[in-house]
């Protein structure tokens, strides 16, 4: 990547910024260390979304989290998308920018889903080259998040954690580790989630996501519409032991509760982290 690399800071405990909470946040300025925004929600010309974004940014640090970079797609990188991403980053000066290790469509279509990649050398080389292009364009390291998956490709040659590690190391990017997604995939693909955690390079893990999910038949779906479950909290404490304090946020995309309820859930994350710190000292 061109330009100087700076170590990204530890931000503490954050929440996903959702329109339902805009007004309440400005009225009460809740104790939240930072907010994560969904980048594409602000790819608009003006009006309400950008009005609230600017107001809330005035009070809180922010990070940008995208869903349409489509880093693994075999379509060319979408230059118009990258331009909008850059413009938004110049507007709000986020602490970092993240997206998912996935693809979202080809032939200029967008399925608006985080589709998994095969864990192959071909896919690694493809993604690494594209991450480097994106990082050069944005002038900063990006974070890639592990997605939940429900299928395993016949062509996969590696485990998911080997694939993620290899890409992060070769592309020199960082990792947004979604603890819930590891749990969901471990259930769907029958692996031990702690094996996943133990395999990742500590220096690359910059952020954690915590979220809820739902059961459908024999599978767990990453719906982000419920509270974090006990098993995911347990995995979070394992992650704290493995990686130390990492900026953590609660991600809720559907069935969004009142802000106070999310703050209670965020407090739980803080308490787990404090317990971990006490153990450390």
């Amino acid at each position: 990547m061109n330009g100087v690399k700076h170590k990204l800071p530890y931000l503490g405990f954050g929440l996903g910024l959702r329109p339902k909470h805009y007004q309440r946040i400005l009225e009460t300025l809740p104790t939240v260390d930072w907010f994560e925004i969904l980048s594409e929600n602000y790819f608009v010309d003006g009006g309400k979304p950008l009005y609230y974004l600017d107001k809330i940014r005035h009070h809180y640090p922010m990070v940008m989290h995208g869903v349409s970079l489509s880093i693994g797609s075999t379509d060319p990188l979408n230059q118009s998308y990258l331009q909008q991403l850059k413009q938004l980053s110049q507007r709000i000066e986020p602490m970092w920018i993240s997206d998912h290790l996935c693809w979202t469509g080809i032939n200029q279509l967008n399925m608006h889903d985080l589709l998994p990649l095969p864990y192959t050398e071909e896919a690694i080389a493809h993604v690494v080259s594209r991450v480097q292009q994106v990082q050069d364009f944005l002038g900063r390291q990006i974070l890639l998040e592990n997605v939940s998956s429900y299928i395993t490709y016949q062509s996969s040659e590696l485990t998911e954690w080997e694939f993620l590690t290899e890409i992060a190391e070769r592309a020199d990017c960082l990792i947004l580790l979604d603890i819930n997604n590891i749990y969901v995939s471990s259930h769907n693909h029958h692996f031990n989630p702690e094996t996943y955690l133990q395999a990742l390079p500590k220096s690359r893990v910059q952020q954690f996501h915590l979220a809820g999910h739902s059961y459908h038949d024999d599978y767990i779906i990453d719906t982000h519409d419920a509270e974090v479950i006990e098993a995911v909290w347990r995995l979070y404490t394992k992650a704290l032991q493995q990686f130390g304090l990492v900026s953590t946020m609660i991600e809720r995309d559907d069935n969004i509760p009142e802000l106070t309820q999310l703050l209670l859930e965020l407090n739980q994350a803080k308490q787990f982290a404090e317990t971990y710190q006490h153990h450390e000292t």
Partner: peptide
Amino acid sequence: MKLKALQQDFQAYLLG
């Protein structure tokens, strides 16, 4: 299967 062919097939499946 090559990545591009895999994505073509997956997307075709989603599109019915």
